[in-house]
Amino acid sequence: MKEDLHDYLVKAREAVLWKVDGVSGYDVRRPLTPTGTNLLGLVKHLTSVEVVYFGVAFDRMPAEPPPWVGVEGEHNADKWAAAEESREYVVDTYRQACLHSDATIGALELNAPAFVAWWPEEHRRTTLHRVLVHVIAECHRHAGHADVVRELVDGEVGEQRRDDFMPPVDRAWWAEYVNRLECVAKEADQG
């Protein structure tokens, strides 16, 4: 069971990472939602998630945690990359955090105790199983954000680089499909 859960986490990580590949330095950073969601910021945030859930919660901090983890400061500091934080740096830092998380997952049993201080009091004492499920859900949620943001950047879609899981249709088909959805939305709104 632990191996299956870990596999789902690895797949979500891979999906997020390929979404930051192949876009310009501007496009990987630019905010595309009213709350500033951007591709590199999603990777940076997921780095924090890996470190706090598989490091802090198990008292197994990496030797060199990312500088933005555990630092009091600006709200959302882990949701965007400063100009001097290269894509390579952010991605490498994420990969290192994932390797540390993988070591924690590998070393512990699913029932190993964890303490998540930022959860509600009644849920703070938990297990690797619960933390793993939580991080899988969070990583997949942000992979979905990355899907949408990447599509807005350059039209690139799909769950995986090798197989996009999209129907084999052309741009004209998609344009007609989107137009049909727009018409249905207007019709439904009018009652």
Rank of each mutant, 00 (worst) to 15 (best):
E74K: 13
V52S: 04
V23M: 07
S24G: 15
D21R: 07
V71R: 14
L9V: 10
L32Y: 00
P66Q: 07
W18K: 03
E72S: 08
A57I: 03
F54M: 13
G55D: 11
L39F: 09
L17N: 02
Y26M: 08
P62Y: 08
T47C: 10
P65A: 02
K44T: 10
M61E: 14
L39D: 07
P34H: 03
G25P: 05
D4S: 12
T47S: 11
T37F: 06
S48N: 15
G73H: 08
V23H: 01
D4I: 06
V10A: 10
G73C: 09
D4W: 00
V28T: 07
A15E: 06
K79G: 05
L46M: 15
E50G: 09
V20R: 01
Y26K: 11
G22F: 03
W68C: 11
V10Y: 10
P62Q: 08
P62I: 11
M61W: 15
L17Q: 05
R30V: 15
D4Q: 06
L40A: 09
Y53E: 04
A12R: 03
K79N: 09
T33C: 00
T37N: 10
E14M: 09
F58I: 10
K44D: 07
V23L: 06
D21A: 09
G55H: 12
V51C: 00
P31T: 00
L42N: 13
A77Y: 02
G70P: 12
V10W: 08
Y26D: 14
K44G: 05
D7K: 15
D78G: 11
L5D: 00
A57M: 04
L32S: 04
T47Y: 12
V23P: 03
G41F: 11
G25K: 05
P65G: 07
D4L: 08
G73F: 05
G22K: 03
G70I: 15
N76V: 04
P34L: 02
T37P: 01
T37V: 11
H75E: 13
L32A: 03
L42V: 14
V56I: 12
P66Y: 11
R13M: 05
N38A: 12
S24W: 00
G55N: 10
V16P: 01
L17I: 04
K19G: 01
L32N: 04
P65F: 05
